[in-house]
């Protein structure tokens, strides 16, 4: 798999939380040949199952398909579009960005004049699509349609890349990479590849998927913040230092057993890893841990700078490490590989 090409293809299909149809169609095509069954559940999660011989521990691997964006709530007399944020928009980062609607209508998102950055919120931002009147705007955009900051992905130095929404199309790419790795391997228990919906608005999709399949183990693939930029919060996690094995974020403390296991697998297989403690932000890990009967939950993260901006930055080497470690972990659950 050409990881850069794969990631770029996934990034360029806008799909905000609750409206993941676009990205889901694309991923479905890619994952279907690597699994025995593919479902879409009531909330819209895409679930691919690779059946096991039925006697081993089942595992759910999850990355979220949705991205943050804007929902059209109102069009004013002059054709300006008022929006509500979907997920955690950083308004300062979003200001004066190019945006694109689900139907491909281009525009820019800007704050009202004179509003100070500290007071930025959905109530003082609007999208300008260049419409001259309400009527003209309404021909292009309807209430309920979404916009995203225009997706881009570019290569920087080395294996570094930059763009959006790396959160969490990089996780989806990793999951596809793992599915490829595991395709020809035998597994005792079922493997559920879950591309979840609505993570950005509170980890909703992974909750129902975990409930439905009740896996024994669960592993989440997402981005994490880093402590390697000037003036940033102190954090022992750096872009390029390998797969980040999550110990804690603000929504979860990972099961000590799975952390230990991931560390020892990484060391055995000489996979570059680092330990991650994220003090702000949550992931699907928490909902998988506690849904239904619960699961032994952990997470592998791709360290990413400038998360939720238009210029998210990560290192493909870290994503490759996540693929290698994730695949090795799943293999370790099967007899003969232990």
């Amino acid at each position: 798999m050409n990881i850069y090409k794969e990631l770029k293809e996934l990034c360029l299909v806008p799909s905000v939380s609750g409206r993941e149809e676009g990205i889901r169609g694309l991923i479905k095509k890619k994952i279907a040949p690597l699994a025995d069954e593919v479902y879409i559940d009531a909330l819209g999660n895409l679930i691919a199952v690779k059946k096991g011989s039925g006697e081993g521990a089942s595992v759910m691997l999850c990355a979220h398909m949705d991205e943050i964006g804007f929902l059209t709530t109102f069009i004013d007399v002059d054709g300006r579009i008022r929006v509500s944020n979907v997920g955690g928009i950083g308004w300062a980062a979003a200001s004066y960005s190019k945006v694109v609607s689900e139907k491909g209508v281009k525009g820019v998102i800007v704050p009202e004049e004179k509003v100070k950055p500290n007071d930025y919120s959905s109530s003082n931002f609007y999208i300008d699509i260049g419409a001259a009147s309400k009527k003209e705007a309404e021909r292009k955009v309807s209430i309920g349609e979404f916009f995203v900051v225009t997706p881009t992905v570019d290569r920087l130095l080395g294996k570094r890349i930059c763009g959006r929404p790396l959160d969490d199309r990089i996780g989806c790419t990793v999951l596809l990479g793992i599915a490829e790795e595991l395709f020809s391997a035998k597994n005792d228990g079922d493997i559920y590849y879950v591309f979840s919906v609505q993570e950005e608005v509170g980890c909703r999709g992974s909750k129902t998927a975990a409930f439905a399949f009740a896996p024994e183990y669960s592993l989440c693939f997402d981005v994490t913040a880093t402590g390697d930029t000037p003036g940033c919060e102190n954090m022992a996690c750096r872009v390029g230092d390998g797969a980040a094995i999550k110990i804690k974020d603000s929504s979860v403390i990972c099961h000590a057993e799975i952390v230990k296991k991931l560390v020892s697998i990484a060391e055995e297989n000489k996979i570059k890893y680092q330990r991650e403690i994220l003090t702000r932000g949550g992931t699907d890990t928490s909902s998988m841990q506690l849904s239904g009967r619960g699961s032994v939950a952990g997470a592998l993260s791709v360290p990413t700078r400038y998360i939720h901006s238009g210029v998210e930055l990560c290192d493909l080497g870290d994503a490759e490490a996540c693929i290698a470690l994730g695949a090795a972990f799943v293999k370790s659950l099967s007899e003969g590989n232990r």
Binding site: D41, A42, L43, R204, G205, K207, F211, A212
Partner: peptide
């Protein structure tokens, strides 16, 4: 309701 069980429309 929508997050209950395996999800509800």
């Amino acid at each position: 309701i929508h997050k209950s069980g395996s999800g509800v429309k």
